[in-house]
Amino acid sequence: MQQKTNAANRGIDAYPLEFSGSGGEYFRLWFVNLLLTVLTLGFYTPLARRRTAQYFYGHTLVADSPLEFTAQGRRMLLGFVLFVALYVALKIAAQTGQNRMVAVLMLGGAALAPYFWGSAMRFRFNATRWRGVRLQFTASWGEVYRASLPAFVFSVAWIGGITEIEVLVGKGKSGSPTATGFAIAAAVVAVVVSVLCAIRLEYNYKSLMVARGRIGGQPGRWKPRFLDFVGIWMATVGVFLGVVLLVGVAIAATLGGSFALMKRTHPAGVAAVLMAAAIGVAVLFLLFLASAPARAYREARMFKLVWSNIGVSQVARFKCRLRPWRFVGLRVKNVLLTVLTLGFYRPFARVSEYRMKCTSVTLHVKGSLDQLAGQLAREELAVGDALADVVGLELVG
């Protein structure tokens, strides 16, 4: 049972979050989910996700009370079947040369993507409860589509860049220095715009989730700025380039020593073949590891930024003390062990990473916790179900 710490002078109580799950316990759940998913040709996937969410929510203690995930498996399964049907229709149209149908399906999917995302958020929030009080996602469809504008700009940027290159090739100018320069410039502009759009889209979606999220009748409070996100992405690029440099040095050293050894073996011998195979595996493995620290660094920095700058109206706020480089070390260890165990360490890795993030967060509540919980329950009844139940398709659970 966690002990409440008191910031007495301001009447604010601090409740560190806890996670009571274990890797061994989750491994059994994960293995059953994997087995049933394989036996049902993937159709058990939504039910596996539901069981996984229920496990992690049920073992996450917020002020000594676990979260609840109450989504109905039947609704998640229906949404998954509909998604699979749409995907299969797209693949069949592409393989049978029905280009017009493919274009219609892709444009329709792009236009409906924000709607699907908004529906998914409503579904997830609606299915989450704490002390019997439900979370709600109250963003209007206009707000969801405005937040999704960077995705449309992203599409336009790439369509424009590809069109420019195709025009140059069609005019037979692809070999000239001027045409090459234009093609490179178009590609660079498309990449820069794409990165900025990706950052803005992530910022828009996270801010919308918090600012338009409610627990009971209390709205969320959002403080991070867009430039904070840009800074994290730039730092992530720096980490990635640094890791790539180190990996490149390691690969060069490995290849240099291996080539020297191969020169002393018969070119067609078994030893040479095995050595070449070993070198190939080592290079691929190192390249796979190169992106892991950067992705973990970004994930940890983003988690800390968000959870240190959000709250519930003026009555509660969160603070996060996650150490990004410690999380990077844990991720690298988990990747190595997962590869060495052919994937069977993955459940233990997931639990350890979730535990580190969860226990780094502290909830600060103004006044009595029981009083706050009672107030949230009363305000939820006052708001009623109408607002939260305009859910749409709820495709993703």
Rank of each mutant, 00 (worst) to 15 (best):
K319Y: 06
L322F: 07
Q54R: 15
G374D: 13
A8I: 07
V247M: 05
R51H: 09
R295L: 14
G213I: 04
F152T: 12
I159R: 01
Q72R: 14
A272S: 15
M234P: 01
Q218S: 13
P66C: 07
Y354M: 04
Y26C: 03
V243R: 04
V351D: 06
L227C: 00
F152Y: 14
G216D: 08
V84G: 01
A186I: 05
K173L: 14
F303D: 13
E380A: 15
V351F: 10
R346W: 12
F116N: 03
F43S: 04
L41F: 14
L255S: 05
S308M: 08
W222D: 03
L330T: 04
F83H: 01
D13R: 06
E202H: 09
W158R: 01
M101F: 07
Q136Y: 06
V243N: 00
L77S: 12
F327R: 00
G42N: 08
L168K: 01
L105W: 05
L61V: 00
V281H: 03
T359N: 03
G160W: 10
K319R: 13
A277S: 11
G161T: 04
S140R: 02
L340E: 09
F19R: 07
G231N: 05
G280M: 06
Y115S: 13
F327M: 03
W117F: 12
L363A: 12
V237A: 15
A272N: 12
Q3H: 07
A113D: 04
A235P: 03
V244P: 00
I162Y: 06
L369D: 07
L39D: 10
F229P: 02
A290Q: 10
D389E: 15
Q218K: 10
A127T: 07
V335R: 03
F182S: 06
E379H: 03
R28C: 11
G242A: 10
G213A: 07
K91A: 13
L168S: 01
E394D: 14
V192D: 08
D13K: 05
G21I: 09
F259T: 06
R355D: 05
G231M: 10
L196T: 04
L287I: 12
M209E: 13
V239G: 02
G142T: 14
R346Q: 11
V32H: 00
V102P: 10
S360G: 11
L289C: 11
K263S: 14
L135I: 00
M302E: 09
T138R: 14
T338I: 09
Y203I: 04
S20H: 11
L112V: 15
L284T: 09
Y44F: 13
A8T: 12
P177C: 01
W325F: 14
M209C: 13
R214G: 00
M101W: 13
S308Y: 04
L246N: 04
L369E: 12
G329R: 14
G384T: 05
E353K: 02
G170C: 00
F80Q: 03
I251K: 08
F348T: 03
F285W: 14
H364D: 08
R146C: 04
G392W: 06
F69S: 05
F327D: 02
F259D: 06
A85R: 00
V189T: 12
A300N: 07
V191Y: 03
L41V: 14
S65Y: 00
R131T: 02
